[in-house]
Simulated assay, not measured.
Amino acid sequence: MTTSKLPPDAKAVLRRYLRTAREALLWKVEGLSEREARLPRTPTGTNLLGLVKHAATVEIDYFGGVFGRPWPHPEATPWLAAADSPDADADALQAEFFATVDESLEQIVGLYRQVWEFADATVDTLPLDAPGHVWWWREGRQDVTLHQILVHVTTELNRHAGHADILREEADGAVGLVAGNDNLAQGFDYAAYTATLRGIAEQFPQEGR
């Protein structure tokens, strides 16, 4: 027998997965210098502190405006107003993906924790079937529920946490799933494993060269 009813603890489960994704992302910037946190590590400029700033922006948008709840601290996020301007250019739209010289690592992390409180208030106040409207999604998909947004945001944060896993390993070799549980095989020779994989790959020609 199947049922479409959600279990009574559905919101608590969704909150737990959201919280885990948040904490995993912040853990990846712990212990880094301002320089290391900001350095772009891909050809498209992906950087660890920028991922945290972007995550804060994502949660403000999805748990705020989508449900008619204005972000109460616009002075802390001037890039949001610039991006929402009708005259916004590519630079303004990109501002959420990096920290400026005047935005410290501590400040961005603190901001994100403040955003958690704002977002959690939305989740605590509204039922899972509460309606919302994502105006920037394509027509036909803009009307959503809190349940859908919780899943969407958690999925996005986990994707960025995966980005952060790789960037942090490249920065200083630090790896792991969450604090206190690296989820790595104990005693495994990763250096030898990597060398084996490189050896396999190098048996194939480099395409286009």
Rank of each mutant, 00 (worst) to 15 (best):
A83S: 13
Y193V: 04
I60K: 00
Y190E: 00
Q94T: 06
D165T: 05
W79V: 02
Y190K: 04
R38Q: 03
P86H: 06
V144C: 14
R141E: 14
R22G: 01
K11Q: 09
A81S: 14
A192C: 09
H163L: 05
E103I: 03
R113N: 09
L157F: 01
T20C: 00
I200A: 14
Y62H: 15
G64F: 01
Y17P: 06
L25M: 01
N47F: 02
S104R: 05
Y62P: 08
K11N: 08
W137L: 13
E207M: 12
E96T: 14
T44G: 03
T155K: 11
P40Y: 06
A83D: 07
T20E: 13
N181S: 13
Y112E: 05
E59Y: 04
E30A: 10
L14C: 05
H73I: 01
L48V: 04
E202Y: 10
W27M: 09
A130N: 03
Y112R: 07
L6R: 14
P7G: 15
E156L: 03
A82I: 06
T122G: 01
L177R: 04
R38E: 03
F67P: 00
R113S: 07
E207C: 12
A56D: 01
Q203F: 08
T122Q: 01
G31Y: 03
E36A: 09
D189L: 04
N158D: 00
W136L: 12
Q203I: 00
G208L: 13
P74Q: 11
A12I: 04
K53S: 11
E139S: 13
L26D: 01
A179T: 13
A56R: 00
L80Y: 04
N181R: 12
A179R: 10
L126W: 06
A21M: 01
F204E: 10
R141S: 09
T20R: 07
T196A: 15
W71T: 14
T196Y: 15
G65C: 10
E207R: 15
L14H: 07
A179Y: 10
K5S: 15
H73R: 11
A12G: 05
L184D: 11
F204Q: 11
G50H: 02
T196K: 14
A95H: 08
N183W: 02
Q206E: 14
P43M: 08
R19A: 15
E202F: 11
L167P: 07
V52G: 01
T44I: 08
T46M: 14
E23G: 00
Q114T: 11
Q94E: 15
A179M: 13
D182I: 04
H54F: 09
R209I: 11
E117K: 08
H163Q: 09
P86D: 11
G140E: 15
A10V: 07
D129G: 08
G162F: 06
V175P: 03
K53V: 10
M1L: 14
Y112C: 01
G50V: 02
Q107H: 09
Y112W: 14
A10N: 04
